[in-house]
């Protein structure tokens, strides 16, 4: 086939209906050290090993249609993350989760899956807020101190250039459940494509402004514990968000 014919074929392919599995997943252990792109590949290969009817994108380079709600940075564990996996046909959500779990490497687990119609809003666009748990000696008082500051200017690297940025506006609240334990703290932050609080920058600010020891900060365990839609404090966990489908008017 000539290149021009191939191009024509690619553009005239009909839209295929996607049957989406909205998955809540967790990661820990060795897979914590994977970057976002590698994590995507790991899910993709697991789905292929499980021989699930994954839907592929069209075009020159067909890819499995998988959308993560929010990339997980290297070194960050999660007890509650989300991704949408598109399938070619309807599939029982319980079976889907079970089969994926049998194929995923140790440390990655689908906690629950839900069959949803093809969503009009990408799962990424829903995310406004995240919660993180930090575990390190004396981290709770340090973070409480940070919350009292008006500004927390940290330097972040973007496109090879150092840039100063104030992360204080991204920190919304400290959860109070563990208030008796100084070494654990959970924080709610802004998240998503517009304003996103990076946990490593939060730790950096604690080191810089709140007297947290550098080595302790570097060794802090960071766990993402939730992703939410809506404006804080009226937030909804992603899995409880109503799905607007293409057939809704």
């Amino acid at each position: 086939m000539l290149q021009s014919e191939l191009e024509k074929k690619m553009t005239t392919q009909a839209h295929q209906t996607a049957y989406v599995q909205r998955c809540r997943f967790a990661r820990e252990g060795a897979t914590t050290y994977l970057g976002h792109l590698d994590l995507m590949t790991v899910f993709e290969r697991a789905a292929r090993r499980a021989e699930l009817p994954i839907l592929y994108s069209q075009g020159y380079n067909p890819r499995p249609m998988m959308v993560f709600a929010l990339p997980l940075g290297v070194g960050i564990e999660s007890t509650c993350d989300y991704l949408d996996i598109s399938l070619e046909c309807p599939y029982d959500a319980g079976d889907f989760a079970k089969e994926m779990n049998a194929a995923l490497p140790e440390g990655l687990r689908i906690l629950s899956a839900k069959s949803i119609p093809e969503p009009k809003d990408s799962i990424m666009s829903l995310v406004t807020t995240a919660s993180y748990r930090f575990e390190a000696k004396g981290i709770r008082p340090a973070l409480l101190k940070a919350m009292e500051k008006d500004a927390l200017i940290v330097t972040k690297m973007a496109k090879g250039k150092a840039k100063d940025t104030d992360i204080r506006p991204l920190l919304l609240a400290v959860k109070s459940e563990q208030d008796e334990d100084a070494d654990v703290v959970e924080i709610i932050t802004l998240a998503g494509s517009a304003n996103n609080a990076r946990p490593d920058l939060i730790l950096q600010s604690l080191k810089q402004y709140c007297g947290l020891d550098a080595e302790i900060a570097e060794n802090a365990r960071v766990v993402r514990t939730g992703l939410y839609a809506g404006n804080y404090p009226d937030t909804t966990p992603i899995e409880d968000c109503p799905v607007r489908s293409w057939s809704d008017s």
Binding site: G29, A30, T31, Y33, L34, G35, D38, R45, A46, R49, V74, G75, A103, P105, E106, G107, E218
Partner: peptide, 14 residues
């Protein structure tokens, strides 16, 4: 976290 590609050093593959 200090080294490039830490996944090289942790194992845990299928």
């Amino acid at each position: 976290m200090k080294v490039e590609s830490p996944a090289r050093y942790v194992g845990g593959e299928v």
